[in-house]
């Protein structure tokens, strides 16, 4: 498989989507730490923290200014139960802390992971409900496909690099609004130790992509650190 063609294709796709729309865009940094602990043969717990720091937040067609601004931090705990080979049902809670009042999110997911001949695929079907004192409850429906493609051999071994590509489709309903969002996240990963993986990449998010009137586009430089305890 020609990785260069895949990466160039993804880059063009991100730029192509970005060409539509004239509205708000955001650029920032989104580091995350993700701890996964196996409790027994069926149960696992995942604890994650993720922060957002803006570099730019502006409208298209207007001169941009560098604007470093802390946005928010998420803390989440998700419990999962294995329900078959490569299949999991999960449920969890996320707390979002920012300058505004705290936001609470309840998460339910069904995850299917497949080991194919030379790469891995994961399908995630999710719903969540976001509650806060200031806004109506937001209901979201999500589907994400994630792939891990080793850059050497047929699996990403210790001390080896891999390419990870996430593509997510998300529908959100928060009275009276409804929007669709698409996310494309190409990343370069490295298995630093048996239990540590580091990933760097771009997280591109486009709202209202279906009618090509982007009311918000976001570009996040992502740094993911996965730890298996």
């Amino acid at each position: 498989m020609n990785i260069k063609i895949i990466l160039i294709g993804l880059f063009c796709a991100v730029l192509g989507l970005a060409a539509f729309g004239q509205n708000l865009y955001q650029v920032g940094l989104m580091p995350s730490v993700n701890l996964n602990k196996k409790l027994d043969s069926k149960w696992e717990v995942n604890v994650k923290t993720e922060a957002r720091q803006y570099f730019y937040q502006d409208a298209f067609n207007e001169p941009s200014k560098i604007d470093f601004q802390y946005d928010l931090t998420d803390f989440s705990v998700i419990g999962s139960r294995k329900v078959g080979l490569g299949k999991k049902i999960t449920g969890g809670y996320l707390l979002r802390v920012s300058d505004a009042s705290p936001v609470h999110r309840f998460i339910q997911q069904f995850i299917v992971t497949q080991q194919l001949r030379s790469f891995r695929l994961s399908h995630r079907f999710a719903t969540d409900q976001t509650l806060s004192f200031e806004e109506p409850t937001e209901y979201r429906l999500r589907y994400r496909i994630a792939s891990e493609i080793p850059l050497n051999g047929q699996r990403a071994d210790l001390k080896e690099f891999y390419v990870k590509v996430n593509n997510e489709y998300l529908g959100s309903m928060q009275q009276p609004d409804f929007y669709w969002e698409v996310r494309l996240i190409p990343m370069l990963g490295y298995t630093a130790f048996e239990k540590h993986k580091i990933e760097l990449g771009i997280d591109y998010r486009n709202r209202s992509f279906l009618n090509f009137v982007a009311n918000r586009q976001s570009y996040w430089a992502r740094v993911n650190w996965y730890i298996s305890l």
């Binding site: 993700n34 996964n36 490569g86 992971t113 891995r120 994961s122 995630r124 891990e148 990933e199 298996s228």
Partner: peptide, 29 residues
């Protein structure tokens, strides 16, 4: 779970080994 079985030419059982799945938290969460 996934297992790897080995049988001889007549189909008689020789050995079995459990195939451990690779850690997948980075494509699950």
């Amino acid at each position: 779970h996934l297992y790897e079985y080995l049988f001889d030419a007549d189909g008689r059982f020789m050995s079995i080994a459990k195939i451990l799945p690779l850690k997948a938290s980075n494509i699950e969460y």
